[in-house]
Design a binder for these strands. Structure first.
Lengths: 143, 143
DNA sequence: ATAAAAGCAGAAATCATTACTGACTTCAGA
DNA sequence: TCTGAAGTCAGTAATGATTTCTGCTTTTAT
């Protein structure tokens, strides 16, 4: 029950701490394997969940059949690109009033958390769309 | 490519149409089996996804490792009970202004949809909590 | 009525996640 | 420093939701 130090947990935490792309367990596994080639996926999962229980990570699910782990545990919103699947933080500002108002719709219940995810096309993909559109135009008449 | 009528798809649609509890594929499967005992889970999945592609259903993921299907395709919010896992609609009102303001945080991207899910304790579970607290008090001194 | 095309049932395959197990570490106390 | 109880690990098997595959059935345009 007492939490003991482990190199593996440390490595998982070191790997994920500075990332802003909210990797999945598989990505963390591949990353930590660069340092500990024998680490097992089960160990990665166990430690990620442990870190979550410790309150050092939060999890996000965006419908891609994988749990994403985020070292940012403060209130913030996420953006998912429908095209490339990338997951990124949105720049946020004070949304407390907005949230209170939204939450008031839940009268009679106790709300402790909520999650909001936006889906759309990210900046990178939007740029590629423009390039593609131009290329098509060069080829000939579009519809 | 042309969509043909099928009793199975009709049964899936009939089953889910009037429900407000956003069942999973398994629940739909069990329900439709009452009418077509030989229907297969694969058929249920295929038709649910078809109905989604047709725009007659929307899907919700609440982190319970299952897709929930909702015949309500209009904009609305959901509430998930952390205790019993139940999923319910929240009473909503005009949130357009709120949403516009939230969405503006996504400058430079194109947002087409987003999802907001609230987590907490539902009315039923809150009632049970009260009962339990009383029972404990009768037993003796709590901490 | 007929046959091409869509659908189906049942079974097998995927894939993320979890559980299990016997062998290591960690670390508090002697 | 030594020791052993408890926490961890690697590797592997199990789970469970969803998807795919295949040969047979139903639907429907003609």
């Amino acid at each position: 029950m007492t939490l003991k130090y482990s190199r593996q947990r440390q490595a998982v935490w070191d790997f994920i701490r500075e990332r802003h792309d909210h990797p999945t367990a598989s990505t963390v596994y591949e990353g930590v394997r660069q340092i500990y080639p024998n680490i097992s996926l089960g160990t990665v999962y166990r430690n990620l969940m442990l870190l979550k229980d410790m309150g050092k990570l939060s999890t996000i699910e965006i419908g891609d059949n994988a749990i994403h782990f985020d070292p940012n545990i403060s209130d913030h919103e996420h953006f998912v690109c429908r095209r490339c699947g990338s997951l990124a933080d949105l720049d946020t500002y004070d949304l407390k009033a907005v949230r209170t108002r939204l939450a008031s719709a839940a009268a009679g219940r106790e709300i402790d958390t909520y999650s909001t995810i936006y889906f759309g096309i990210c900046r990178n993909c939007l740029a590629q769309t423009t390039e593609k559109a131009e290329a098509v135009e060069i080829q000939g008449a579009g519809s």
